[in-house]
Amino acid sequence: MTSQPLLHVDQVHKTYSRGVFNKQVTFDLQADFTIHEPGIVGVMGPNGSGKTTLFELITGSNNPTAGQVLVCGQDIHQVRSDQRDRLAIHYHQSYQVRHFRKRRPNFMLQPSHTDYPMVHLFDEPQFNTQDGYIGFMLDFFRRLRDEGRLVVLCVHPNEPFHLQIMQEICERYIFVQHGRLSLAPTYDGLLANPDVTAYLGDLVGGQAA
């Protein structure tokens, strides 16, 4: 099982459409990537770009239109819904909700192969420089990584220190825009993408200054 990649998002498509007869696609997310090793991945992108949808697809709370998500080699959408959080967890800003759309009852699905989640997705955690919790949170991400897990950290940067955090802790990056993903292996590589610099705007300049 250890030879399996930690997370394999395999040709996943998610399409939202409007209308019954004359269908119009309102949103379309496409993702296809593989992460083999434990690590910390930074995800950025404008609101409505599909970050949260991507997270929902990975944790199995939202069903893809096509493709599959393999966590440690197991298709998460084939796992009992009450055990999917043993593979991947989606942390909302501060609270956590586990809600799964069921297509089949649990007894027709597989049990999870692991007891403690291997993929941790943090959706815009609230960082506040005043209270000091950032330090504990970053150490927690590192601890998860050192224990062999994959941390995916989604941040919507609106302060320079948000970028500082990303740069400090993340080992690779994913930029999401209009439902398309672009992967960057390094922070510099991320900033080399003109879409990213356009999205970040003053924040990058501010940090350089």
Partner: peptide
């Protein structure tokens, strides 16, 4: 220290303060 329903950090006060971000905060 509890967050997301988990213990994200643990230790004596001095140990916990020994962190760049904590030192930079009010707590530091």
């Amino acid at each position: 220290v509890i967050h997301w329903g988990q213990v994200i950090a643990q230790g004596g006060p001095d140990e916990l303060r020994d962190n760049e971000w904590v030192r930079a905060s009010n707590l530091g």
